[in-house]
Computed example of a mutant assay.
Amino acid sequence: MIFIVNGEEQAVQAATLADLLHALEYEGEWLATAVNGELIHREDRPTYALRHHDRIEILSPMQGG
C-alpha cells in the first residue's frame, strides 16, 4: 500500500499501524503516532487498520542538545 509518512510517500506492506512501525524500523516506548490527524495510542496500534493513502505522522524524541 501507499502511505504518506511524515510528509513523504512510502510503499509499505502493512495492515496495521504496528505493522507499519515495525516495517519502517521504528521502535521504543516514546513514539507518538497520528493517522489522518487523529492521535493513536500505543495500545491501539496493533489493531488500528490502515488504508491506502493514509497520512501517518510518527514522532520520536530527539537526543542531544
Rank of each mutant, 00 (worst) to 15 (best):
A11E: 09
I2E: 07
A11R: 13
S60V: 13
T16W: 00
T33R: 02
N36V: 08
D19T: 12
L24K: 04
N36P: 06
D19M: 06
E57L: 15
Q10D: 04
G65D: 09
A32R: 05
P46M: 05
L59T: 13
L50T: 09
G7R: 03
I40H: 07
P61M: 13
A23C: 06
L21S: 09
L39Q: 06
R51D: 08
E38C: 06
I2N: 09
E27K: 14
D44F: 02
G28T: 13
A49K: 11
H22P: 06
L17S: 01
I2K: 12
V35G: 02
Q13L: 07
I56V: 12
G37W: 04
H52E: 15
M1G: 02
E29F: 01
A34M: 10
A23Q: 10
V35Q: 04
I4M: 04
G7F: 03
R42A: 12
A49G: 08
L50N: 01
L24I: 02
G28F: 06
L24W: 00
T47W: 10
H53K: 10
E25D: 15
A32T: 12
A23P: 04
M1I: 00
G28K: 07
R51Q: 13
P61H: 01
S60F: 11
I58T: 12
A11M: 03
E43N: 10
L21E: 08
G28A: 04
V5P: 04
E29S: 11
D54P: 09
H22N: 11
L24C: 02
A14H: 06
L24A: 02
G65N: 08
A34F: 05
E29Y: 02
R51T: 07
G65A: 11
